[in-house]
Design a protein around this nucleic acid. Structure first.
Lengths: 107, 107
DNA sequence: CCTCTTTACTGCATCTGTCGTAGTAAAATG
DNA sequence: CATTTTACTACGACAGATGCAGTAAAGAGG
């Protein structure tokens, strides 16, 4: 299992990744993360929604409603240019982190 | 810079790695981590010492004093078999984490 | 000899992201 | 018509990391 202390700070990055190509909403993002990670990582609901709040507060995503004639009303999210920039930074940081941590890993 | 939310949970692993081959003490471990990471990661003092407390509480390290006729008295640490086992687990977890996070990283 | 820097910690309070638990509510399924 | 799935919201607790402050001994430099 991947502990929350390791993934911490990368949940935001995963969500932003999911929004790079298309706008989406909580449940769908959650499912897509689970699938892309091949069931190896499942983001908790509370983690997901609190990440949305944080990301929107920081200006990295925008929330909106769509006119839906079916289904329960969803909150959709769209990535902003600031969100894309932040995502890019996180990718660079991740590569550096890997490089550093790998020096402390055996085999 | 590597954010504390990313490295979180790996500080313990880095410290244990440093104790695999030889017993050591706070200041030395801190210097060695800085050097091994090529100055890319510097563990904060408070983080380091609070990690020692936690690691000892969990039975992963043991603290002791050496008879020193010079210098200020140091608290030395030694890794336990449980600490080695925990370190191994963390290595496995780290590989899985890399695999998963890399799916969400562009380029 | 005296000051400054380096070594070697300890204590305490705060912040932040994650998570457990609970609850709401509408639509789909059987 | 009951159960499951979808789609959230609220609240409180926890743990690791950090900022800040303080202590104290040894070594370095003038």
């Amino acid at each position: 299992m991947i502990s929350s202390d390791i993934i911490r700070g990368y949940n935001d990055t995963m969500i932003l990744y999911m929004l790079l190509e298309q706008e989406s909403y909580g449940y769908e993002i959650s499912k897509n993360i689970r699938q892309l990670s091949e069931e190896k990582y499942v983001m908790k609901e509370t983690t997901l929604y609190s990440a949305f709040t944080r990301l929107e507060k920081n200006g990295y995503i925008l929330s909106f409603y769509r006119d839906e004639t079916f289904g329960k009303r969803r909150t959709y999210y769209r990535i902003t240019p600031e969100g894309r920039a932040y995502y890019e930074e996180k990718c660079i940081e991740w590569r550096l982190t890997q490089e550093v941590v790998n020096k402390f890993i055996r085999e």
